[in-house]
């Protein structure tokens, strides 16, 4: 895919994460989502569940371009950020199961796991929120003047929200250190991209706000990282925001309640699976199949351990909620 603009010079190098490590993270994410599909089936994880199978490269590639101290805002489909930022997955799974050891003590669930120590502030289940929060983080970061950046993850569905327009204008107007990653998975729930937006090349929207944009193959983890790296470098050196559109595909249901029937099977056949693409590239560069198998096995074991940790975690204390209501409303806190 073509870059609309060239990244400027003077970009700081991203931390050294090689393709093998990116592959390992994507495999971990795939294992997590596959385990979650089972946990939902077993009733151990309840409520809506938005998996990202097929979209691993976009989120993993983007977070690999960040440095300590940067912030990330995310969507209702945030697992790539959880894995990409290195959240402890036992606690993360505990949160998704509503257990006491979850990062949010079971109050947030799978869509609302913030982790301040890992720069995740945070995901939201409302389409468009990640854009608005990023404006606020960007304002705070610009004021602090420490060269910190916010990665705002959003999707093709959100580009049609008012929040997108309001946020894009503000990050451009105030030259905020924000990188907007549009994960274009080509469906807003059941509605295909060309049925919910006329200009399907979403990165072209950025021109209207006067900010640079780039469209990349969202299934190529290195391409995503490179594009986001360029954008992060520009933001860090006070060059303002960039929009990166990563074109990918959701190769799983929208959520647990998805009745299906709207995706054309032919679409999926022509797809490049991001893990397969990375694996082929690793082999072509001289990695041995056993190394990949070893990485796959390690990821599976890590997720199995995380699931076991979460299942062993106790339920949170409901008395905390009663105390909170009393603090807010006194005796009328019912």
């Amino acid at each position: 895919m073509t870059a609309v603009i060239q990244p400027p010079a003077g970009v700081r190098p991203a931390p050294a994460v090689d393709l093998m490590e990116l592959y390992r993270r994507m495999r971990l994410l795939r294992c997590l989502d596959e385990a979650l599909a089972d946990l939902v089936e077993q009733g151990l994880v309840r409520g809506p569940m938005h998996l990202g199978i097929g979209q691993e490269a976009a989120g993993i590639g983007a977070t690999a371009a960040l440095e300590d101290g940067d912030l990330v805002t995310a969507t209702h489909r945030p697992h790539a950020q959880y894995v990409g930022l290195g959240l402890p997955l036992g606690r993360t799974l505990a949160e998704m199961m509503g257990r006491a050891d979850g990062q949010c003590g079971g109050r947030g669930g799978h869509m609302l796991i913030a982790d301040r120590a890992h720069g995740l502030l945070g995901p939201s289940g409302i389409v468009g929120h990640s854009l608005l929060l990023a404006v606020g983080h960007g304002l705070a970061q610009r004021r602090a003047g420490l060269g910190r950046v916010t990665l705002c993850v959003t999707g093709d569905g959100a580009v049609n929200s008012g929040a997108f327009n309001e946020a894009l204008n503000m990050v451009a107007l105030w030259r905020l250190p924000v990188v907007v990653l549009v994960e274009n998975n080509r469906y807003g729930l059941s509605v295909r991209l060309d049925r919910h937006v006329h200009q399907t090349a979403l990165h072209r929207r950025a021109g209207g706000y006067g900010i640079p944009a780039v469209q990349v193959d969202g299934n190529d983890v290195e391409a995503v990282r490179e594009a986001v790296q360029g954008a992060v470098g520009r933001a860090r050196s006070a060059g303002g925001p960039t929009l990166v559109e990563a074109v990918t595909y959701r190769n799983c249901p929208f959520s647990g309640s998805d009745r299906g029937g709207y995706q054309d099977p032919a679409e999926a056949e022509g797809l490049t699976d991001p893990l397969r693409l990375a694996a082929e590239r690793l082999l072509a560069r001289g990695r041995r199949p056993e190394e990949l198998a070893e990485a796959d096995g390690r990821a599976a074991r890590e997720i199995a351990q995380a699931v076991a940790f979460a299942e062993a975690s106790p339920w949170p204390e409901a008395a905390d909620l009663v105390a909170l209501a009393a603090r807010w409303d006194g005796e009328g806190g019912r």
Binding site: L71, T73, L121, G122, H129, L131, L132, L133, A134, V135, G136, H137, G138, L139, A140, Q141, G162, A163, E166, A167, N169, M170
Partner: peptide, 13 residues
């Protein structure tokens, strides 16, 4: 909505 949403982010930051 953008202003209040941005302010929510600022407060978190």
């Amino acid at each position: 909505n953008g202003i209040v949403g941005a302010a929510v982010g600022m407060a978190m930051s």
